[in-house]
Amino acid sequence: MNLNVPFALVGYIEPWWMVIIKSVVFAFIGLQLVPVVLMMERKILGRFQNRYGPNRVGLYGVMTPIADIIKLLSKEPFRPKTAIGWLFELAPILSITAAFGALALVPYGPVVDIFGTATGLYGIDVSIGPLYVFAFGAISFYSVMLGGWASGSKYSFLGSMRAAAQLISYEVPQGMALIGVVITAQTLSLTGIVEAQQGMWYIVPQFFGFVVFMVASFAETNRPPFDLMEADAELTGGYNTEFGGSKFTLYFFAEYLNMIVVSGIATALFLGGWLLPFGIHPPNWVAPFIVIAKMLAFVTFFIWIRATLPRLRYDQLMSLGWKVLLPLATLNALITAIIVVA
């Protein structure tokens, strides 16, 4: 029984009620991962800097993110006099919407049997694959841009302008880096790409693609060393300077969700998704845990880089994107195409 959606075919194999349950569950997983990542970041950064990290709230400080969220949500909603009302309200909502939309693509497992119903352990499996994520990336750009512009503050505006230039520069090499994977797997569907990695994870044959994709992803998610739009020493805080309370929470969550989404996509594209190496075939119910473990490994890598590398200068960022990453990604796509065809 297929779900009769009026939109383009997205390959639902479940009945409609399962699709609804699935969306709620995956949204929940995403939301639950955010505090985990938040806590990981603080603890790991603390260890990198030779200190304990937060350890006051709860056992070993595990309740710190909860305290954080309660603090943020109970703050007074404040709006600068120069802000443009409805855009100021809309921008954070756009940001979290785009993040959740992209989250739907992360595949957690193959099609399994739940209570006698065949269910794919993924939000959606579209034939356009990673392009779907890029579409939401375009929308999240507007949330940053509108947030900075509608704040009516120079610093926010400068931050969002930097973001604009950075996002359009790094979208190109990020997309080009994926072409190698797509050519090798001969499909755009993420579950198809994972299944095609049975023999070998694509991190091995597509190593250059992987490196370019990761560097571009750091820039796309505005993580250090590419967090120029939030460079606090120059811009006080970037596009979200004027946002407080629950609006800031939305931006904050969206930023971490974007990091989780990129980790999930990278897991599916390069680390074989729910597959394990050395011919180990665990039962299907283990698959989501494997994916989440790999995603958290990526997140740890993000944090590691943040603790290690200093921030780039703005012109370095631009020339890295256009003069190094883009030619590398193009060359990678070209060579892959020649090898696959020959």
Binding site: A8, V126, I128, L131, F134, A138
Partner: peptide
């Protein structure tokens, strides 16, 4: 049902 065109529209024009 033109999914590719739709995404291209968003990525190229809006993005």
């Amino acid at each position: 049902e033109a999914q590719f065109v739709a995404v291209a529209q968003i990525v190229v024009y809006a993005g």
